[in-house]
Design a protein around this nucleic acid. Structure first.
Lengths: 326, 326
DNA sequence: ATGAAAGCGCTAACAT
DNA sequence: ATGTTAGCGCTTTCAT
């Protein structure tokens, strides 16, 4: 692999001049420029980004930390972050945490200093203290009770959950369950609160099912238990579309009709939900907006502006489909 | 950020000794070791990986190049590659190509030399000549007619497609369509060939639908056209589960029963297919095996062994579900 | 406008 | 066992 020095030798100039040409510096004698450019192609020179970054003190990469790429919401989000990052000439390095605090701490540790310019992280179970040793700029996805001087971007989960449950109430449903409670996930607490508040406004309460993971399997198990209970619900609000997919399947397995016997609402707007039978009513966050905002925020931080922590609240909408208005 | 030099100064030793401690070199005087370790924690020292890699001539990262993370198969595969790479202390940098030749060439170019130690790439439309300027070790996912001295890992697509179509024939279906033909995708050609051959063995032929993308939308459109044709098929083999999901939806929209009127087989074994109604019969590749093999192969190449190009053929199985044997 | 040389933080060869 | 030093490839003063 040719280095600047090789090129300089071939062109008969100093490395400085070659560097100037490579970096588009304007004032290079035309004759030298030509010779350098020829040497550049002759050697097939490609800059060593590692060396350049070492010198510049930047890495050219950012980290994206998510629970799991197997969860469609995060896969889609990751794709959008990749796209947004490319606009800033950033490479993206992805880490999976599996949604555990341990995994999240490991991820934070693994990308110690100098490996990325900053990180976009979607924490599930992190405590404030876990951020102590963190090096670079950080943007948090989702709302968190963590009172840290960090940028956040995400939707209003409480309001979104309220919207979902109100939709069910408007449809005349009265026994509305929630599936997805989790002891130490911040978003779960918020969505649960939205569920509780919307019901309270109507003078109601509803059963709550906890899950260990946000996977289809867990949604199916929770739904099965709910349907087999003495007082089965006439509607279910699931905290993500995977849980909802499992719930739909459990209903089908029992011959329970959706939405006839029980209406189902999800959260995330995975494309799979739009194509299933019945198609899934869901809360649709603006994922592209989230990805873009997160990367832009990170860029500003990395550029060193000394800004106060910001919270960007992205919009969402309720997409009504067959699982509630078949 | 503390450097080796800072630590050395604080501990009153040379950088070499600190480096020895940091790198777990055995022979350090206990007293010095203790002092260095104290200085290490006192300064909160974290090695500058960029500098270390510059020196070692490695980057500590590998690239994974896939069409799109929005496609569940690639999202899941990416998650598995992430996991496999962690076992080798590799960070993974993901690039999306959107399945176009242009995107694939850009991805190859973007990760010029020095940014990754090597790449795992899942090419769709790449020609042999596009690999000319590639720097490091490369492992190709899927089988490709490209006659390049590169490692490949993937399943036998022709045989897998044959298996899918034979299953349909065994069920008594006689008009078996294929959805997913594409002019310049290597895997499409292979699956098409399997379809054709299995039918030919039974003295049959079947309609073939081309698609532009491998998305649900395209599957739905293709299925709609097939069902509306003068001689609708009694079975459909889709080249991935997304196309199959679209096909199932199109059938449902027309009141066509699956598998009663038309049986559907997919490819990839996305988990969504197992939970849908009807659940989807599909070809299930060993994704974890593919991810592991690819990363292991890359590791050997990076370690500089001068090996001949290898092809690892990973197993697959047919998962029979409701969409063919309701 | 360009060259010489220092230095980013680290590892490894060499010396002691 | 540990210190000294060169050098990975690049950018950037500082001269000229």
């Amino acid at each position: 692999m040719a280095t600047l020095k090789d090129v300089a030798a071939l062109a008969g100039v100093s490395v400085k001049t070659v560097s100037n040409v490579v970096n588009g510096y304007a004032f290079v004698k035309p004759d030298n420029r030509r010779r350098v450019e020829e040497a550049l192609v002759a050697t097939g020179y490609r800059p060593n980004l590692g060396a350049r970054n070492l010198r510049r003190g930047r890495t050219g990469s950012l980290a994206l930390v998510v629970p799991e790429l197997g969860i469609p919401y995060f896969a889609e989000l990751a794709g959008l972050v990749l796209r947004a990052a490319r606009a800033h000439d950033w490479n993206v390095l992805i880490q999976q945490t599996l949604g555990t605090r341990e995994g999240e701490r490991e991820a934070l540790a693994a990308l110690g200093p100098h490996v990325v310019d900053g990180a976009v992280i979607s924490p599930e179970a992190l405590r404030g203290t876990d951020f102590a040793g963190v090096s670079g700029p950080l943007v948090l996805l989702g709302e968190h009770p963590l009172d840290l001087p960090l940028d956040h971007v995400g939707i209003d989960n409480v309001e979104a959950a309220r919207t979902a449950v109100r939709h069910l109430l408007d449809l005349g449903r009265r026994r509305i369950a929630a599936i997805g409670a989790h002891p130490d996930r911040a978003t779960a607490a918020q969505r649960l609160r939205g569920h509780r508040e919307a019901l309270a406004d109507a003078g109601l309460t509803g059963p709550v099912a906890s899950v260990e993971h946000y996977h289809r399997r867990d949604g199916a198990a929770a739904m099965a238990a709910l349907l087999d209970s003495p007082e089965p619900p006439d509607a279910v609000f699931c905290f993500n579309d995977l849980l909802a997919a499992g719930a739909l399947r459990a209903a089908a397995d029992r011959g329970v009709r959706v939405p006839g016997d029980v209406a189902v609402v999800g959260f995330d707007d995975d494309e799979a939900g739009a194509y299933g039978s019945p198609s899934l009513t869901t809360i649709a966050p603006d994922k592209a907006g989230i990805a873009r905002a997160a990367v832009d925020l990170l860029r500003e931080r990395v550029d060193g502006r000394d800004l106060p922590p910001r919270r960007v609240r992205t919009p969402f909408r309720l997409r009504i489909r067959e699982s509630t208005v078949g």
